[in-house]
Amino acid sequence: MDQPFIELIDIHKSFSGNNVLDGVNLAIEKGLVTCVIGKSGCGKSVLLKHIIGLMQPDSGQICVDGMPTNQMDKAQRHQFHRQISYMFQDNALFDFLTVWENIALPLTEKREMPMDQIRQRVKEKMQMLEISNHENKYPAQLSGGIKKRVALARALITEPDAVLFDEPTSGLDPVRRTSVHAMISTYQKEFGFTAVIVSHGIPEIFAISQRVAMLDQGKIIYFGKSEGIFQTDNEIVKAFISGKDA
């Protein structure tokens, strides 16, 4: 197997004595969609926040492209943040900025790119995600589905190698859930980024994922191809995907 793009090695994290991650090992391959499933509160979002660097593990190591994140210098850390984007569960759009300003923010704050190029790139992303007519609106004026698209546009504006999605369909009805999954799948194929999706949308999430990881009691109890999850012998996994209590 090639070197994984993101690798979590024996990650431990506890909050007030409660072990949320208890020796997590996970290898995320480049260009694939990996979904992380598990019961509510089992630490899926915590896992994702460790990858992006919003949380630090008590022990263990996270490597991106073979480089341990805790050994990165300032320049490497900037490069790492350019490589990986994060889409928050509740979108985390800035309510005092317009849609255009929200999407452009990661570029305008850096000023590493001329303004006309920023405008061009934002325009392209807005056209691809079909949100061009919402350019001057504020997040409060948008529907849930459009907000998701704006958040995705912002995550993609730096043209990252990987996007981490924290429950992108939470709070959406089944129709919108399907459309958000379709949107992620379509743009993943179009832009070719690596995707890690934390989701409760079972079984539809398996249709857009090539790899599935299940987290239970702080450990990865299943990792493999998404079609293989239905053939697993693990009783906890079987019970979870069939919606029963193990």
């Binding site: 994060y86 928050f88 850096k110």
Partner: peptide, 25 residues
């Protein structure tokens, strides 16, 4: 209030993921 709302709605975390220093912003 404005910065507090940014904190609880994860906007400050979003800044960190975009490599924008939240104190500067």
């Amino acid at each position: 209030a404005e910065i507090g709302v940014m904190r609880i709605s994860e906007q400050i975390d979003a800044l960190k993921t975009m490599d924008i220093h939240p104190v500067r912003f």
